[in-house]
Write a protein that binds this DNA or RNA. Structure first.
Lengths: 234, 234
DNA sequence: GCAAGTTTCAAACAGGTGTTTGAAATGTCA
DNA sequence: TGACATTTCAAACACCTGTTTGAAACTTGC
């Protein structure tokens, strides 16, 4: 009836096969996404039998959520959104650090690139794991960013404007992760990923700081014709 | 050996079944992506037999590329990147129009939302169709945007900086398309999609104009500690 | 009406999917 | 050593996938 399992999944990883499966699964899920990854592919790379996944993780979804949880934990420990000593920095410096950290999370060439790709896929094609991910990982980051922006923009700006500005900052960062295939085709001469991390962090920070400093002043350039409805004024 | 096909695919759509298949396929591909869409699902919605796809389009990939080509054509005709009369506008107004057009393309509630989702999936999980899409649809838009930015930022800024600014603008816009599942979970009270189009266009334009106006001046807030390498100064 | 071409259809095909099985191998502890 | 639980394995299961088949149903032009 039900599959045999380890009677109680012990707190520590108990088998080498388990670890090999987790590592291989991270690769394959990052490459193919949850739905298109095959357990036969994962097991081949891990040197394990197909039945190993059901034995160790119950089923494919169980393996996936374990990969996601572990990656999320490792990445947030390695690149914390609120690093020690952040309070002594100016809001501008905190924003610069946030941007750099976030870019590292999604562009770092090693294990973390896989996390960026898996998160990207989760956003475009959510699985059941997204709810937990938002609650435990994404929301704390979002609130951290909005606190920084609040410190920069003052208490008078409505919360909705803070949110919009936060999405503008994060949108710039995620672009390099979500649109990599397009960027590579549009600008083939650009070296991708991590080698440009410094340059990208510098630009996004500069662009965002300039925008935030003068966000309240600019009248946003009235659109050409408001009432002719169509953007093509025929 | 080879499947039977219409001897020469006539220039006009010759059958109602063909149109029904294209419409149903657009829905399903937008919902599930190319790989996870099933021809049985498409055919059921179109009220057609499974063999109809092979008869009318050769195979699943043929159907997909036809959907993509038609959508791209329709959307770019409805929301042109370079609307008539754009030359008489200031660069700032042109940027405002560009932002609005782009947001409409990816957020409009009707047929174009499907196009936005299909494009999103194509970026995250490219198929063979992406090369053609970049050449025919994305690159012209990118060059249009960079021309606007060039006019605003002057001829002295290096092309690489123009590119980065362009990606900052587009990244803000695509965020609302790529991250919709996350946005919905983070801020459930926000009405999604199209009803906020005016507000979003206004914000992205204001944010970008403020950034571009002062992009050269800000020294980008030096990062706290450059040489201690880790963002977590342990 | 009739023949030719066009379009649909139910059924089957070959291959891939996640999952399960029951036995064999391995480890563990007395 | 022997008895026990844990872990692996090849094989099979049931299901789903895109595609093909060959005949039936249409449409068209004479």
């Amino acid at each position: 009836m039900a599959a045999r399992r380890p009677p109680e999944t012990p707190p520590e990883a108990h088998a080498a096969t388990r670890q090999a499966l987790l590592a291989a699964a991270a690769d394959v899920f990052a490459e193919c996404g949850f739905r298109n990854a095959t357990i036969r592919d994962i097991c081949r790379r891990a040197g394990a039998n197909v039945a190993a996944i059901n034995y160790h993780f119950g089923d494919k979804a169980g393996l996936y959520s374990e990969v996601l949880a572990e990656q999320s934990r490792v990445v947030r420990e390695r690149f914390p959104a609120r690093p020690a000593g952040a309070e002594s920095l100016s809001p501008e410096q905190q924003l610069a650090a946030f941007v750099r950290t976030f870019l590292q999370r999604v562009l770092s060439p090693d294990m973390h690139a896989r996390h960026g790709r898996i998160m990207t896929r989760e956003m475009v094609d959510p699985t059941d794991a997204l709810d937990r991910l938002v609650k435990e990982a994404i929301r704390p980051d979002a609130e951290r960013l909005m606190a920084i922006l609040r410190a920069m923009l003052g208490p008078d700006l409505p919360a909705s404007a803070i949110r919009l500005c936060g999405m503008s900052v994060v949108g710039q960062i995620l672009f390099y992760c979500h649109c990599q295939p397009v960027i590579r085709r549009l600008f083939p001469d650009l070296p991708a990923d991590a080698s440009r991390l410094d340059e990208l962090a510098e630009h996004v920070t500069r662009f965002s700081l300039a925008a935030l400093k003068h966000y309240g002043t600019a009248p946003s350039a009235r659109r050409p014709s408001r009432k002719s409805s169509s953007p093509n004024p025929a």
